[in-house]
Write a protein that binds this DNA or RNA. Structure first.
Length: 250
DNA sequence: AACCTCCGCAACCGCCAGAAA
DNA sequence: GTTTCTGGCGGTTGCGGAGGT
């Protein structure tokens, strides 16, 4: 492979767009593959991070609710810095987000609490059996990761794209995969490139999510309430991409 | 109005575990 | 059974914006 330098740093709008489409096409498992197919000069790792922390359609944005704060506090007291584990109890929140949040908010709060309340009644309580919050607030999530619960595959089929479903269902050999790479590069991916570069409004049947919304600092418009998120029986991937509204990227 | 400091967040790095060859 | 590869996780860093002086 030609040794082009691997890109690092902030993602561009175009990169997000490509990644979202490629993930929608091939799934969010084989990140090395996704990185190659997309033509992004990024590592699979980087692609995964971007998807998981930013592009995933199920992500919640905006401030943590009081309930979420409590939950984070309790679960952290229980599990420590197991951020991904904690994140699974807060659908729509990523480990990175919780980690950041903890650093900036919770630690401070916890310290304040420690000072105002006696230590024995503050954090230690949550690790005891008198901790109904976790069970009562997240009854069905115990065995399900966030992605299992509201993740990609389920919605993937909901898109009603047969070819895509087959791609997911089927177990791939490496031959299959490389065949797909060639096909994808020749057809769909190049179309994506072209569509994007032409700056046209694109109605891509496989479009994952409204990429342009990411840029405005909010994955989903929170004004309408968070009800727009986690609609298991509805299509979470609005099939639009209106570049004319896209804010500039950096 | 300009400068400085702090905060929030996106992204990277290194390590580890599990899967595949 | 061993080695290599890939993905996941936790820790850390750096940048940009907001707020304060």
């Amino acid at each position: 492979m030609a040794t082009e330098e691997i890109r690092k740093g902030p993602w561009t709008e175009q990169e997000d767009y490509l990644l979202a489409n490629v993930v929608n096409l091939f799934g969010d498992r084989r990140w090395d593959f996704v990185a190659k197919v997309s033509g992004l000069n990024r590592t699979g790792k980087s692609c995964r991070l971007r998807w998981v922390n930013y592009l995933h359609p199920g992500l919640k944005r905006g401030k943590m609710t009081a309930h979420e704060e409590r939950l984070v506090l309790e679960l952290h007291a229980k599990w420590g810095n197991r951020w991904s584990r904690i994140a699974r109890k807060l659908p729509g929140r990523t480990d990175n987000e919780i980690k950041n949040y903890w650093r900036t908010h919770m630690r401070k709060k916890a310290q304040e609490q420690k000072q105002t309340i006696t230590p024995s009644t503050a954090l230690s309580d949550s690790s005891s059996s008198s901790n109904p919050t976790q069970e009562s607030l997240s009854p069905d999530r115990e065995k399900e990761s966030f992605y299992d619960a509201v993740g990609f595959d389920a919605e993937f089929s909901l898109n009603g794209n047969k070819q895509a479903e087959e791609l997911v269902d089927r177990v791939y050999s490496m031959d299959d995969i490389w065949e797909d790479i060639d096909k994808a590069k020749e057809s769909h991916i190049s179309q994506l490139y072209n569509s994007f570069n032409e700056g046209s409004s694109l109605y891509c049947p496989m479009t994952v999510s409204p990429v342009r919304d990411y840029c405005s600092g909010s994955l989903w418009k929170m004004d309408d309430g968070e009800s727009k998120m986690f609609l298991p029986s509805t299509n979470q991937f609005p099939s639009y991409y209106d570049l004319s509204e896209a804010p500039s990227y950096g």
